[in-house]
Computed example of a mutant assay.
Amino acid sequence: MGLLRGMGLTAPKKPAPKTRTKARVAPTTVSQLRVAGIAQPVEVRRSPRARRLSLKVDGATDTVRVTVPPRVGDAEVAGFVGRHLDWVNARLAALPPRQPFIDGMAVPLLGRSAVIRHDPGRRGGARLVEGPAGLDLYVGGEAEFLNRRATDFLKAEARRHLSALTAETAARADLRATAVSVRDTRSRWGSCSATGRISYSWRLILAPPQIVHYVVAHEVAHLKEMNHGPKFWALCAALAGDVDKPRAWLKAHGAKLHRFG
């Protein structure tokens, strides 16, 4: 790289440029703020990436969240939320009620309904049985542990179903995920890392099959296209078929899935 090709001479070394130290980006900070007219504290996220104030009601956690630039003070945040008080309270009131898993409750399960049957004398884990009237989910142990045990069963079912569906979908595109896991994610239904590890929200097991197929196709498509460009959406549509209706369903009904358990 140091030769002047036309003359066969070596160019004199230039002094090395001074290296500039990158300015450290301040981390996002999270605090709570009481605002008149709202029962719970407002979560304030001060982010160096924020250019304006934005307001959100998180249906998964019942959280009123404001994202603001770092130098915005609490008084300005409170004033901003206060000007949108009617909108915030309307969103909170519209949230579906929370539904812990209890005896006799019907739980959506991949487009079907499974009725929880508490059987105190039953040992071992929960068991799904095809009964004369449909699916029954038998859960043993003390009543106080029913919600947790039903949740554990559904998580295991989600892991089993999503792992198999991911392998099947990836094979259709000549792709392969390096690992599949489930978590109780709140902000996304699935994710795919650069190393090919795919993670899903276990709550997808509560959604209709076509919704689950779309989310799996979405993450499998990321194994090849780590973006949301035209090639990604073309592959996603090829694997899932319709993508618009599932996306609309998740937007309209996704919050309800987070209310279970």
Rank of each mutant, 00 (worst) to 15 (best):
L3V: 13
G6V: 01
G6L: 01
T10P: 04
P17E: 14
K18W: 09
R20H: 13
T21H: 12
K22R: 13
K22Q: 14
A23M: 13
P27W: 08
P27M: 04
L33T: 05
G37N: 12
A39S: 12
P41D: 01
S47C: 09
P48V: 06
R49F: 09
R52T: 15
L53H: 13
S54I: 04
A60Q: 09
T61C: 12
T61M: 02
T63E: 07
T63K: 04
V64Y: 04
R65A: 10
V66R: 04
V66S: 08
V68I: 01
V72E: 09
A78G: 14
G82Q: 07
H84A: 10
L85W: 02
D86W: 06
V88H: 02
N89Q: 04
L92M: 08
A94P: 15
L95T: 12
Q99R: 12
Q99H: 05
P100F: 02
D103M: 02
V107Q: 05
L110E: 04
L110R: 06
L110D: 06
G111S: 11
V115G: 05
I116W: 08
I116L: 13
H118A: 04
P120F: 00
G121M: 01
V129L: 09
P132L: 15
G140P: 15
G141V: 09
G141P: 11
E142K: 03
F145D: 10
N147F: 11
R149G: 08
A150W: 03
E157Q: 11
R159Y: 03
R160C: 13
L162P: 05
A164N: 03
E168C: 02
R172S: 11
A177H: 04
T178D: 09
V180N: 03
R183D: 14
T185D: 11
W189C: 06
S191G: 01
S193R: 08
I198A: 00
I198K: 01
S199E: 05
Y200S: 10
Y200L: 04
A207P: 14
V215A: 00
A217Y: 01
H218S: 01
P230R: 11
K231L: 14
A234D: 11
C236S: 07
C236N: 07
V243Q: 00
K245N: 07
P246Y: 01
A248M: 00
A248K: 14
L250K: 06
A252I: 13
G254T: 06
K256V: 13
R259S: 04
F260G: 05
